[in-house]
Structure formats: C-alpha cells, structure tokens
C-alpha cells in the first residue's frame, strides 16, 4: 500500500519497517500474554467459566436473548419517537420567524449539552412520583424518555444539516414557480433531505444502542448488562460474560455502521436525484454550541 505520507519503501526502509513490525509484535504479544496470564491465575480461562455461553443450552435463552431483545426494544422505540420530534425541531430552527427559531434552538442546544444519564434519572424519578407504573415499565419509560430527549435534539441538527446540504437552486426554483414556504418544504426540500439524512440517522442508531446500556447499569432496565447479572453471579464469570456482551454489541453496531457507510456511498454515486449527503460520522459526537456542516464533499 502506498500513502502520501511516505515513499514506496526501498530496501533500507523495508528492513527498518520489518524491525518496527517485529518490536511491535513482541510488545503486543507481551501485553496479551500478561492479560491471559493474569486471567489464568484467577481461573478465568477455565472451560466452566465459558461453557455457559459456548456450549450449554439455556444460558442464552434465559439471560442474553431477553436482554438483547430489551436493548433492541428501547433503541427502536426511541428512534421511532425521536425522528418526528427531531424533524419538527430541525425545521423550526430554519423558520423565518424569530419566535419559532429561537425557542427551538434553545431546546436543541440545551438537551445536547446535558448527559443522557441526567435525563434518564430525572425521567425515572418523575415517573415514580407522578405516575403509577410497575418497576419494569417505569425504567423502560425512563430510558426511552432520556434517549428521545437527547437524540431528538441530535436528529434536529441532522435534519437541519440535511436541508442545508441541498443545492440552493432547489429552493430558488421552487420559489420561482410560485410555491409557498410550506410547499417548498414539503414537496421539494424534505423529500430530498430525508434521503440525504439516511446514513446519519442509521449511524445515530449506533449511539442509541450503546446508550441503552447506561439505563441497564444505573437504573436497572433489563437490557444485556442487567439481564446477564444473575448469570455471572451464578457462574462467577464476569469477564467471560462481559466479553460475550461486548462481542454482541460490536457485531450489532458494526453491521449498522457498515450499512450507514454503504448507504452514504450509494447515495453519493447514484445517477438519479441529488447527491447531497449528511455523512454518518458527523453525528457520532456532536458538541452543543457548534453547528454541524452539511454539504456535498
């Protein structure tokens, strides 16, 4: 592989690169050996620690699958509710009227500046004081409320970036043929912006899936970590359990990320329609007080 940063290696550079590679492999192997040795010392590599997940039937059905289902349930419900809220807030931020634009901006910036856990704790306590739910329902509602408030605001920025990413000629042409502002938004901008936003929305799902775990660990919502708790206390195999959970999350999120990247590439390369795209990586960690750039790269 060649790169702009270095020339195609000659004999001397090749030898040096092999030396670096050798040293790196030794360091890496030492690190892995240290971890495995420490695990072996505490019997964490024994087959009976891993057997429940690799060979025994029942563990998956009792602990992991219901947990995974709860993770997916909270994530799916959250994105379905957050999308329309995000659309409304995003469009409101682009309004010509100050009294619509400013409150929408304040709401969006406020909820993006607050950790999702603070929102979940508030929702959980509020449902406890003002509602009459059993524990399971209450924590589900609390997790979903926290995720909706935060991700609704993030998606509002995605919607805004999506609309701003469209070529200016689109609005000009629509206004020139005599469309009103509502028609311009509904018939011209939104349908194109939705396509442009798809990769960013899919990659926001990764953030939502990861954030459900907060609800499990702190509020006790029955997602993967919380659902696996009885399993690892029974078999005394925290490390094996968390490795299995991590692998599940990595597989799920890797699929979503790959899909988002494929969508982005597909939308940029297609012949028909606009090639404006909100790139998926722009959402991942968005700072309040800063605007996301849109646009054709």
């Amino acid at each position: 592989m060649t790169s702009v940063l270095y020339d195609i290696p000659g004999p001397k550079a090749k030898a040096r690169n092999w030396l670096y590679a050798g040293l790196f492999v030794i360091a890496l192997a030492a690190g892995i050996w240290w971890i495995l040795d420490a695990m072996n010392d505490k019997d964490q590599l024994d087959w009976d620690k891993w057997e429940p997940y690799l060979a025994k039937s029942g563990t998956w059905e009792t602990y992991l699958l219901p947990g995974l289902l709860n993770t997916l349930k909270a994530a799916a419900v959250s994105i379905v509710i957050a999308l329309p809220i995000g659309a409304v807030l995003g469009i409101a931020r682009l309004s010509d009227h100050v009294w619509i634009r400013v409150p929408a901006s304040i709401i969006v910036e406020f909820f993006r500046a607050i950790p999702v856990l603070i929102l979940m704790l508030f929702a959980n306590a509020a449902y406890d004081v003002f509602g009459n739910f059993d524990f399971e329902t209450r924590v589900l509602y609390a997790v979903v409320t926290g995720l909706v408030l935060y991700n609704g605001s993030v998606l509002a920025e995605v919607v805004r970036a999506g609309i701003l990413s469209l070529p200016k000629g689109q609005s000009e042409a629509a206004l020139a043929v005599g469309m009103r502002k509502g028609q311009l938004m509904n018939y011209v901008l939104l349908p194109q912006a939705v396509t442009a936003m798809l990769p960013a929305i899919v990659s926001q799902l990764v953030v939502i899936v990861k954030d459900t775990a907060i609800g499990g660990a702190v509020l006790g919502y029955g997602e993967l970590i919380a659902a696996a708790r009885p399993s690892y206390s029974f078999y005394n195999n925290v490390i094996a359990t968390l490795v299995v959970i991590a692998v599940l999350f990595i597989a799920l999120n890797y699929l979503l990320t790959s899909f988002a990247n494929w969508l982005e590439k597909y939308l940029r390369q297609r012949k028909r329609g606009s090639t404006a795209v909100v790139a998926p990586d722009m959402v991942e960690e968005q700072a309040p007080g800063m605007h996301m750039g849109g646009g054709v790269h």
């Binding site: 420490a38 695990m39 010392d41 505490k42 964490q44 990764v206 899936v209 990861k210 954030d211 459900t212 775990a213 907060i214 499990g216 660990a217 970590i225 925290v238 490390i239 968390l242 959970i245 991590a246 999350f249 990595i250 799920l252 999120n253 890797y254 990320t257």
Partner: peptide, 20 residues
C-alpha cells in the same frame, strides 16, 4: 462499538475485582 458502560463495568468488576 462497545458501550462505554460495558467498558467501565468491565474494568471495575473484571480488572479490579476479578484480576486484582
């Protein structure tokens, strides 16, 4: 792609309480 929660719980329960 791993939730931060899993990483933190893993370092407390796994690294500290299991491996010391």
């Amino acid at each position: 792609n791993t939730p931060l929660t899993v990483i933190l719980v893993g370092s407390s329960l796994g690294l500290w309480q299991t491996l010391g």
